[in-house]
């Protein structure tokens, strides 16, 4: 993943999650982290940090160095170190196959700026429960807004809306509008057993199905953002390879 960010902060249940790019040099990571914290300054102050080092093997000295950067002068506490999910690399072959099934959604060309609408009500990091579960059908005119992830066991009908700061998972048919990453996050996904939305939005990007009859999707699909375009592909696990 050439375009992968080297340092990513993400809100999680345990506090801030800090994710490092596996392929990057430690010194560059250190620099990037410092710059990142400088920019965020007061925003992160006093938070607990879970460090996800993925496939990297850090020495004790390196971890201490990171701890130091976090603690001074930003007041962050390194609470826990985890090795994020590691995928077996043999999935690579499958990726090539599923790539054929991919389809992109048409971008909506009008200029938009959600943040002017959403930021007032949305914290940039999730607070309260991380994920909420909704059981039942969301009907036209009903909406769920949450500053974390949303899981729906049921259908989202046309005219219904889900807006989440995090991911959206619909265990049923998504026929209405779903907006994941409503606080600005772009590394979020929308998953549905039947993904036939009126419109989906991820971060600031809007996608709508192409004109004309598509036929109902036959398998669960996942929508996510890639190079500024919403990409829809079958959810068969293989695409998570190499992702974090």
């Amino acid at each position: 993943m050439a375009r992968k960010q080297d340092v990513i902060f993400r809100g999680s249940k345990d506090g801030l999650q800090l994710i490092f790019n596996d392929n990057q040099d430690f010194d560059i990571l250190k620099e990037k982290l410092q710059a990142h914290l400088q920019r965020a300054e007061l925003f992160f102050q006093g938070a607990d940090v879970v460090l996800d080092i993925g496939n990297l093997n850090f020495s004790i000295d390196q971890i201490l160095a990171i701890q130091n950067i976090l603690a001074f002068p930003h007041g962050l506490r390194l609470k826990k170190i985890i090795h994020g999910s590691q995928e077996p690399s043999e999935n690579r072959r499958v990726v090539a196959e599923t790539a054929k099934k991919r389809r992109t959604l048409e971008p909506e060309t009008r200029t938009i700026d959600y943040r002017q609408k959403t930021v007032e009500n949305w914290a940039m990091t999730p607070k309260g429960p991380d994920t909420i579960l909704y059981k039942g059908t969301l009907r036209s005119g009903q909406r769920i807004t949450h500053d974390g992830n949303v899981v729906v066991v049921g259908d989202i009908n046309p005219g219904a809306e889900i807006r989440a700061a995090g991911d959206i998972i619909v265990m049923g048919a998504l026929r209405g509008l779903a907006h994941a990453g409503a606080g600005g996050a772009t590394d979020v996904v929308i998953v549905a057993f039947k993904l036939e939305p009126t419109q989906i939005r991820i971060g600031d990007v809007i996608g709508r199905p192409p004109e004309g009859e598509l036929g109902a999707p036959r398998e669960p699909e996942v929508a996510r953002l890639k190079d500024g375009v919403i990409l829809v592909e079958p959810l068969d696990g293989s695409r998570w390879e190499g992702e974090r």
Binding site: E108, Q116, K117, G141, P158, I206, P209
Partner: peptide
Amino acid sequence: IGLRNLDVVMGLENRIVYDLVDVVEGFC
């Protein structure tokens, strides 16, 4: 408002980003 249909009849439902209330409330 609350029972919109015209967008469906016009076949423009999936292009909605902002609506009348957003305009009135000054969101866009």
